[in-house]
Amino acid sequence: MESREPAGTDQARTEPIVGVSRNLARLAAADIRMLARDPLLAFIPFIPFLAAFVLRFAVPLLSGFLERALGFRLLDWADLVRAVVLLFPGMFYGMAAGFLLLDDRDDGVSAYWGVTPAGRAGYLGARLGLFSAAAFLAGVLAARALGLGRPDLGRELGAAAIGAAQAAFFGLFLAAFAADKVEGLSVLKALGGLDLAPLAVLLALPLRIAAWPFPQYWAAELMLGRNSRSGIALVAGLGTSALWIAALYGKYRKRIE
């Protein structure tokens, strides 16, 4: 083997520490491979689209049935269904990210990232960022696949942004509170109640206040514009997401240290 100049020489120091886009592409490729090779996780990325297609046909059928039986027209609430569909990818992609983080912790990989230039926080941010970006894109596409409600790209992008933040929320929640994948499934059941948060837009004050801490509620407000201005709903949705993520990151750090 020929003689080698150690890294950290002048040439190496003048290069940027991390070629961000190249590294993110590598990490994204690795995460996709790991998802594809895990029988439990391989189908998760497609579930939001499957759900959107099912709802596309099921909601009109159900609406007709309910209108005949109870005089209730479900299609009048198609924007609410659209909001839920926009949030789906955040939840499912966050689950996948959380399960990968649990694997990392079990395998000791998360500790190893701490001695690399990325650092633990950088690696975690990159991974959650990738899943959030995927959730954002998937949310917009799933809403289009649903095809119900009034298309409004501005509102959809806002709700998809809140949904994207949920990927980080769910990922960190799983990694912070579950010891392994089995416990992770239990944690997910406990989080299932968050699916109902968008329905709180139908409640009157002061009951509706109970849903204010949950970003999912604000995504529904943004889509329906029923009780709040869209700007306020967007800021509230992103703000509550940031608070939850900061709190969960603190809990996750304590768990891995």
Binding site: E5, A7, G8, T9, Q11, A12, E15, P16, I17, V18, G19, R22, N23, R26, L27, A30, R33, M34, R37, D38, D103, D104, D107, G108, V109, A111, Y112, T116, P117, A118
Partner: peptide, 27 residues
């Protein structure tokens, strides 16, 4: 480290390429 930690679902080569990509300079 004493206890080697890797992504179990990735191959040896994939692990090396992923970790190496986060370091600057020649490799």
């Amino acid at each position: 480290f004493e206890f080697p930690c890797f992504y179990q679902k990735l191959t040896g080569r994939e692990n090396l390429e992923l970790f190496a990509s986060f370091y600057p300079g020649p490799k």
